[in-house]
């Protein structure tokens, strides 16, 4: 006879007389622990649902107040029912916007760069989200879902803007978004999702930011940059857009306008595979390398990366090399599903 203990979506079997900690550790799920005899308190966790028996948990380590507040020592507690627990360190995260399912209407489909489309979706009602988050689209007539970042700021909550890159043979792009998608089409949308978001406005100190986007990885950065500059119009913001060639660039007018209004904002298009057309002055190479050349020290900055995994990995290394604190590095990797198009 036993029960199930769940933490972070992972469940383990826990025998009636087995300490909860023991059950997790044996299943390979690590949680902080040291003494395993109830005296150190390292393994304290919060019981979200279900009932535990504290057994010989010492009152010094687990006070009556803590028991009343739903805390338990994982090394001592036994389950009296199925239970969901969470780490005490992970609580207090920011509130999230509720996840919703909506039916959107296609308002605009525009080719904005080589193999790149802008899709605007009208919503029947506003969707609360944070800039930088993404939504999932259901490919009509299938179970396939594809994730696309929102290029919007939070007040652009009734018309969502997505940037879509054509993937050769991709069911969602070649088979749908680049083939027959028309204004007026209905699309099932789920969102918002993701944690690629700015700190809450009251915690945003206006510190310098560097953002690097690869291809349509620019999309969430546009929401982030515009929001960050609206909060602190003078802040230093360095945005790199890495593409193969000049034909892949888009939203140049929008970005030029932003730079005009905000003297601290710099936009750097970077071409990786093709030379810069005469007169453009575009730089060539990898945006992550150019960042290392351009910035002597990024201490105190925040860093934002959205693009293919190799670019994100290179960006993390470049940021750390310039001593940008890892805690301040935010990344949005294109998932393998995106490569399927």
């Amino acid at each position: 006879m036993g029960f199930t203990a769940t933490v972070g979506g992972r469940s383990v079997d826990c025998a009636e007389d087995q300490p909860v900690l023991d059950a997790f550790l044996r299943a390979g799920i690590w949680m902080p622990n040291s003494c395993n005899q109830g005296t150190c308190g390292t393994c304290k966790l919060r019981v979200v649902s279900g009932e535990v028996d504290h057994r010989s948990s010492p009152a010094d380590t687990l006070t009556d107040d803590e028991r009343a507040a739903g805390l338990a020592l994982a090394c001592q507690a036994r389950l009296r029912s199925d239970a969901v627990v969470e780490s005490t360190g992970a609580v207090g995260g920011r509130a999230t916007h509720p996840l919703r399912d909506l039916t959107a209407t296609v308002l605009e489909v525009a080719d904005i760069a080589r193999d790149t489309r802008r899709v605007r979706l009208g919503l029947p009602e506003p969707l609360a989200f944070d800039p930088g988050q993404y939504i999932e689209l259901t490919v009509p007539g299938t179970d396939l879902r594809r994730q696309y970042s929102l290029a919007n700021t939070a007040d652009e909550d009734k018309v969502l803007e997505l940037h879509v890159r054509l993937v050769s043979g991709g069911a969602a792009t070649e088979g749908w978004l680049f083939d027959g998608l028309a204004v007026g089409d209905r699309i099932e949308v789920t969102g918002p999702l993701g944690d690629f978001v700015l700190p809450a406005a009251e915690e945003d100190d206006g510190g310098p930011m560097v953002l690097i986007g690869g291809g349509t990885g620019l999309a969430p950065l546009l929401g982030l940059v515009r929001t960050a500059l609206a909060r602190h119009p003078q802040r230093e913001v360095l945005l790199y857009h890495g593409v193969r060639g000049a034909e892949d660039l888009y939203d140049l007018d929008l970005l030029a306008e932003l730079a005009e209004v905000h003297p601290g904002f710099t936009f750097v298009p970077v071409l990786s595979h093709e030379p810069a057309p005469d007169g453009t002055g575009y730089r060539t190479g990898l945006p992550t390398d150019l960042f290392v050349d351009d910035v002597a020290s990024a201490r105190g900055w925040s860093g934002w990366l959205c693009g293919p995994p190799a670019m994100v990995e290179a960006g993390v290394k470049a940021f750390k090399r310039r001593r940008l604190a890892p805690r301040m590095i935010h990344r949005e990797k294109f998932t393998p599903a995106d490569a399927l198009g």
């Binding site: 550790l25 390979g28 799920i29 622990n33 040291s34 003494c35 395993n36 005899q37 150190c40 390292t42």
Partner: peptide
């Protein structure tokens, strides 16, 4: 992640673990 004995065990287990 098995427990280890770096902080000892029993009544003389390290008082300063936490």
């Amino acid at each position: 992640p098995l427990p280890h004995l770096a902080f000892g065990a029993g009544t003389h287990a390290c008082a300063g673990i936490y």
